[in-house]
Amino acid sequence: MSAVRAFVTGATGQDGSYLIEQLLEEATEVHVLVRAEESEAGSTHPLPQQVHQHVGDLAVGTELEALVAAIEPTEVYNLGGLSSVALSWQEPALTAQVSGVAVGHLLKATHDLQERTGRSVHFVQASSAEIFGRTSRVPQDETTPLRPLTPYGAAKAYAHHLVGVWRARGVHASSCILYNHESPRRPDAFVTRKITVGAARIARGLQDELAMGNLDARRDWGWAPDYVAAMVLAARDAVARDYVVATGVSHSVRDFVRAAFQAAGVEDWERHVTLDPRFARPSDAPELVGDSTRARKVLGWSPTVPFEDIVARMVRHDLALLDDAQP
């Protein structure tokens, strides 16, 4: 029996898949929450055989509490929830439930487990820079006031506050405020993967245009496995704290598009990109860039992959997928 037993939600997403790989490499016993449909039909990122799967739903708090009580984890990583900012406008109530209220159930369950067993259980919440919203402070750090602009950001802000509430009650609970982070495992429903897939398809002559919304929004983009590593470091530090996890460098969506087309070998990218108001969000934070000084000093964390390399890795992956699909 492993000395470390982790319970992970959101296990089949981009971050969850990288987290599980890291935990298994460290000989951690890994338990994950999966929805019934994922259990029956498989998932985007198939789970390794040694992972213990538990069917449940973030929208059903009693199921979450019962699972934590039964599994008795030493670490809880909450990466689950509705992860699309755009979709949160269409499903605001569901977003509040699975990205906000569910965190309260998990924290309560963690507290109750500690009370029952007499041992510390370390909890990590995957928070988001969207909690800062239309902030006047650039860059943002752990002291920046929360001013979310979207249902997604509001749900994450509620969850972020809950972490502080339960930490004050003795739970080793940390919130990792993750800025935008990408990899080839990012679903193509996200704008970054839409860009890299589009650039790859245009490079191979399979389409001619890429329709975009706001090219001027600026974000702080990092490498997803780096951000997962930060969450594990936070879970295992002696003191629970909140951490901004970011590179400290911002780029515009236009920069991302330019880098993607360059990586795909398309120089005249502007003639292929059109603006479509259908893809513009109702409200978008103008610039989110993080100050990760605390994570760097306390955890010894630092990002390892530069912006251009992140984009290039995603484009190479998408080009390879297209080439492999050719007869």
Rank of each mutant, 00 (worst) to 15 (best):
L33W: 11
H111G: 09
E287Q: 01
Y77V: 06
A199Q: 00
E270F: 00
P303H: 02
Y179A: 12
S43H: 05
V4M: 15
T135M: 08
S127W: 00
V191A: 07
S250K: 02
D15V: 01
L288A: 05
R185W: 06
P225K: 01
V298M: 06
R186E: 10
D15E: 15
V289W: 03
R185N: 05
E38T: 11
H105R: 03
E65P: 05
G153V: 02
I195S: 02
D226C: 01
E91A: 13
S127D: 04
D112T: 06
V311F: 00
Y179T: 10
V34S: 11
P148R: 10
V289S: 02
T196P: 00
W166L: 08
R193C: 07
T293N: 10
A217M: 14
P225F: 00
V315A: 08
T110I: 04
A224C: 13
F132S: 02
A229F: 08
H251F: 14
R241D: 11
G133P: 09
L299D: 05
Q140F: 10
R296F: 00
A235R: 09
L64P: 07
A3M: 12
G56Q: 13
G104L: 09
V76R: 04
A6E: 11
K156E: 02
L162W: 01
V289P: 01
W166Y: 15
A295M: 03
A93Q: 15
T304F: 05
W269A: 09
V103A: 06
H111S: 11
R294A: 11
P277F: 04
G133C: 09
V32S: 07
L79D: 04
R241C: 03
V4K: 15
N214F: 13
A325L: 15
R281F: 12
L178R: 09
A126N: 13
T110D: 07
H161W: 06
R169P: 03
I131L: 00
G104M: 10
L275N: 05
T117D: 06
H122I: 08
K108F: 07
V253A: 13
S292L: 03
V253F: 15
D318W: 14
L215T: 07
D242T: 09
D309H: 06
E308L: 14
P282V: 11
R119N: 05
R167L: 04
A59L: 10
S120M: 14
H52P: 10
G80H: 00
K194M: 12
E40I: 12
N214S: 12
K297F: 06
V60E: 11
G13T: 03
A211M: 13
H172T: 01
L58H: 07
F261G: 10
S283L: 15
V244P: 14
S174K: 12
